[in-house]
């Protein structure tokens, strides 16, 4: 990871994601996009553009995959801090 992360942000498991695009469509901040690269199962996964996440959870609840999206909210404190 390059330096300290800025909360909130979201993480998308590039292997679990099936690239359906529901999160990209739903994100109110429009900070998600479909990647140009393929994952090992042949999907173009969704990914976070790197900034602008509102921590609203819309992507998390729109995503059909149990663990594809993790959203670290504003008040998240990483372990060991």
């Amino acid at each position: 990871m390059d330096g300290p992360r800025k909360y909130p942000f979201c993480e998308i498991d590039q292997e679990e994601c099936k690239g359906c695009g529901l999160c990209v469509n739903a994100c109110p901040a429009k900070v998600l996009e479909i990647s140009s690269h393929l994952n090992s199962r042949g999907f173009h996964p969704s990914s976070y553009k790197g900034s602008g996440c509102l921590g609203c959870g819309t992507c998390f609840y729109s995503c059909p995959e149990p663990g594809a999206i993790t959203v670290y909210l504003k008040d998240y404190v990483p372990e060991g801090v």
Binding site: G57, F60, P66, G67, I69, T70, V71, Y72, L73, K74, D75, Y76, V77
Partner: peptide, 8 residues
Amino acid sequence: MKGAVLRK
């Protein structure tokens, strides 16, 4: 800290 992260 459950409320601070939305995960699986």
